[in-house]
């Protein structure tokens, strides 16, 4: 019986340890910028979920579309209701892995790398490769990336009436500090 308890204890510790190679947060930031001569649109989301697995070099991001905050309430409503259809497609996600660049997760320093994976926005999934910067510090893995998204690629339709107010290509900036996950949050 003693052996059995010992085994149980070991198994539990071992399983908990398996998480120690992961970095994750729920408080990452994604900003969205559409810039035309007629109108500049800027939105921020501070509730981005992200996890990087240092061992497998895999990473995932997820963001609730309704969490994007705009300066103008009407823009936010149109963004959700008419363009992103956020009740139908509540989340945008990225699932991919670090493919280029030697990120050393146990060494403090700044690393340039590339991530390749599947970006899902508005229910449409595309393969993308994005350059990222990962800065390792005591706070964790600080990851930043900037890339462009062509709205039409993701089936987001802009009516002709507002065509010159919304950019065909918008800039997405990701900025998240991922502390090491020692154990489950719950």
């Amino acid at each position: 019986m003693k052996k059995f308890f010992l085994l149980l204890a070991f198994a539990t510790i071992f399983m908990a340890q398996a998480n120690a190679q992961k970095y994750g947060t729920r408080k990452g930031t994604i900003t969205f910028d559409s810039d035309t001569n007629m109108e500049k649109i800027h939105a921020v989301n501070n509730t981005v979920s992200a996890v990087i697995d240092a061992k497998s070099k895999k990473l995932q991001f997820a963001v609730l579309i309704k969490g994007f905050q705009f300066k103008k309430a009407l823009m936010q409503e149109h963004f959700n209701e008419n363009y992103m259809e956020s009740s139908k497609f509540p989340k945008a996600t990225f699932k991919g892995e670090i493919v280029d660049g030697d990120v050393n997760f146990v060494q403090i320093g700044s690393y340039d790398a590339k991530v390749k994976g599947k970006l899902t926005i508005h229910g449409v999934t595309k393969d993308v490769t994005v350059p990222v910067k990962i800065e390792m510090s005591k706070a964790g893995a600080h990851s930043t990336a900037t890339f462009k998204v062509v709205l039409a690629d993701y089936g987001i339709k802009i009516p002709s009436l507002v065509k010159n107010k919304i950019a065909k290509e918008v800039t997405i900036k990701v900025d998240a500090t991922l502390p090491m996950l020692l154990k489950r949050n719950k």
């Binding site: 399983m15 998480n19 947060t25 497998s56 489950r184």
Partner: peptide
């Protein structure tokens, strides 16, 4: 215990490691 701890280690869903917190909208 195994079920509780092993769950987040599935390769397919890394975000599960954050726990399944559901935001209020």
């Amino acid at each position: 215990t195994l079920g509780l701890v092993a769950q987040p280690t599935t390769e397919d869903d890394l975000l599960a490691a954050l726990g399944d917190e559901e935001p209020t909208i």
